[in-house]
């Protein structure tokens, strides 16, 4: 088992970041070509705590290195199950995810948390536990895990760049929308 962890600070409020998170894999993100579909499976607000729980199914397409394919088979398209929990009173958004497909070959369990650092800063912390089950010998499984950790690292850099763009665009659109509403109100008055 290998662990990948990462932390990023975004210069946006937690409200902005947690809203933009729902659009992370939309057209504003030009660095997430590997995510081809995101569907919501269920969504509810816990009446006692106010926590918003969402289940999503994420479909990814990313080609694995040839040598891994030769050991584990074709593992290009995969489905990920994600459960997320927004706690509005403590201002935390936690997402836990696991791979649905190829789970007999490799197990990836990830947890990401967005929490406020200050009024205008939000901390994103990510950790993933990666276990290769295919490959027979421990030495091969270790190499598979190392390769996947490297892939996680590469994706996290692109993920940050892509999400920065989503945050920038959503702030811009939000400001424009606000301006438009104010103009309409002025005309109405």
């Amino acid at each position: 088992m290998k662990v990948f962890s990462n932390a990023v600070t975004y210069n946006y409020s937690w409200d902005e970041v947690s809203s933009a998170n729902w659009q992370k894999y939309g057209p504003w993100n030009n660095k997430s070509e590997h995510v081809i579909a995101v569907d919501t499976l269920s969504r509810s607000v816990d009446p006692a705590t106010g926590v918003l729980r969402t289940e999503r199914l994420i479909c990814c397409k990313q080609s694995a290195p040839e040598w891994i394919k030769s050991i584990c088979g074709k593992v290009d398209e995969s489905y990920v199950y994600e459960a997320s929990y927004v706690d509005p009173s403590n201002k935390t958004l936690t997402m836990v995810s696991q791979n649905l497909t190829w789970s007999n070959l490799v197990s990836v369990q990830e947890e990401c948390v967005y929490s406020p650092l200050s009024e205008g800063e939000t901390l994103f912390s990510q950790s993933a536990r990666i276990t290769a089950l295919c490959g027979g010998w421990q030495r091969i499984r270790n190499s598979i895990e190392d390769t996947l950790v490297t892939r996680f690292h590469e994706n996290s850099i692109r993920g940050r760049e892509g999400f920065e763009r989503v945050l920038e665009m959503s702030r811009k659109v939000f400001a424009e929308e606000k301006e438009r509403l104010q103009r309409e109100q002025m005309i109405a008055a």
């Binding site: 499976l41 199950y81 696991q98």
Partner: peptide
């Protein structure tokens, strides 16, 4: 989801995720 047979996989994942539900649906009081 039914056509693609993903429903069953989701059911299993949901079952696996029960501990996270317990942990994250009742966060500590502020």
């Amino acid at each position: 989801l039914n056509e693609r047979g993903i429903n069953k996989l989701v059911e299993e994942a949901r079952e696996d995720n029960k501990d996270n539900d317990v942990r994250l649906l009742s966060p500590p009081k502020k």
